[in-house]
Amino acid sequence: MITAVHLTEVSTEDATAWHAVVAASLASDLPEEPRPTFEQVHAQLTVVGRDNRRLLWLATAADGAVLGVAGLRLFTSPGQSHLAELELHVAPDRRRSGVGSHLLATAVKAAQTEQRRSLVAAAPGDGPSGAFCAAHGFRRVLALDHLLLDVAHADDAEADAEHPGYELAGWTGTVPEELAEAFAAAKNAMNDMPTGDWDYGSQTWTADRVRAMAEVLADRGDLLLTTAALRKGEVAGYTEIVIRAGETRRALQYDTVVVHAHRGHGLGLWVKAEMVRRLRAEHPGIVEIETDNAQDNTHMLAVNRRLGFRFHRSTHEYQLDLPAN
């Protein structure tokens, strides 16, 4: 008998079991990828986001053994309140025994109760997760390429390029107060990124929301680095890198944005090249950066290839359209 246990609070024992399932699942599906540490998983489960809520379940056997885990992220900002995002992992030796289907049914019911119309999940480009999604009525809505950059051998020459009227700025953690409003305005330019057939909605960034996002990362123990191109007090473009708590090798690319009115000047390549130099100087232990781009985001893919990013793997986003409850 399989039971989905809803976690209203996450104990150390719960987090340990969750981490064990996720680590085993990723080792099976993505054997060359680094596994998350216990500290990273614990922070993800216990640090609450400012614009979303999370529902968590453990799938247990009759003897209490944890067979699988599921997390449902419920977006709460007005432009995305229709959306829920699913993370689901089953221990490799318990797959094809109904554990995943049971967890999915539980999450779907919860999403409908929360009046969500779209449930999305990510799956590696190859492997059982995509087949599981397809078998349960999900449709593929977006294809992403994951790229890796060898920091030591990246082509950072563009950091020396001249961009008259623009200047570079950088900060760690929360945006400086004098740039908060301008940075929030620049973040809103992300709303025109390619999203395929994904029912993504839109995000509205304010200075308070920008600060809140940085606080969440800090509460998890993650380090947020930002490099921006400024023009007359306006943030014309920026790039963000996150180094997760306890990470010793790989940084994650977050947003890279150039505001529409400032496109066509090479600012995206400029700020990313400067970020490479910054990582070398400030965090020499970080040897690679991982990013992902929609396969039809030809401009950003070209920018990343100029820097030296190489194809690593692919991911597909799947969406289940939910009937009204």
Rank of each mutant, 00 (worst) to 15 (best):
M1G: 15
L7R: 09
L7I: 06
V10D: 10
A15T: 13
A20H: 07
V22T: 09
A23W: 12
A23D: 13
A27D: 07
A27P: 12
E33W: 04
P34Y: 03
R35V: 11
R35Y: 08
P36S: 11
T37Q: 06
E39A: 11
Q40D: 07
V41S: 05
D51Q: 09
D51H: 09
D51E: 15
R53D: 09
L58R: 12
L58G: 00
A61E: 01
D63L: 07
G64I: 05
G68V: 02
V69E: 09
G71P: 14
L74M: 11
L74F: 01
F75V: 05
Q80I: 04
A84L: 02
L86E: 00
L88N: 01
L88Y: 01
D93W: 14
D93A: 13
R96M: 07
S97C: 13
V99I: 02
V99R: 00
G100F: 04
L104E: 00
A105L: 13
A105D: 10
T106S: 05
A107W: 00
V120A: 13
V120N: 02
S129N: 10
A131S: 06
H136E: 00
H136L: 04
A143M: 09
H146L: 12
L149K: 00
A152S: 11
A157H: 04
E158P: 14
D160L: 15
P164Q: 11
Y166N: 06
A169W: 10
T174K: 13
E177I: 15
L179E: 08
A184W: 04
K187Q: 10
N188F: 04
A189W: 02
A189M: 01
M193A: 13
T195L: 11
S202W: 14
Q203A: 13
W205A: 05
T206K: 05
R209N: 01
M213V: 11
L217E: 11
R220L: 12
L223K: 11
L224Q: 09
L224Y: 14
T227N: 13
T227Y: 02
A229F: 08
R231N: 07
K232V: 15
K232R: 15
E234T: 10
V235E: 03
E240T: 07
I243Q: 02
R249P: 15
Y254K: 14
V259C: 15
A261H: 06
L267F: 11
W270G: 09
W270S: 11
K272V: 01
E274W: 12
M275T: 03
V276T: 05
V276M: 06
V276N: 00
V287W: 05
V287C: 10
E288P: 00
E290N: 09
T291R: 01
Q295T: 15
D296M: 14
H299F: 07
R305M: 07
F309I: 08
F311I: 03
F311A: 04
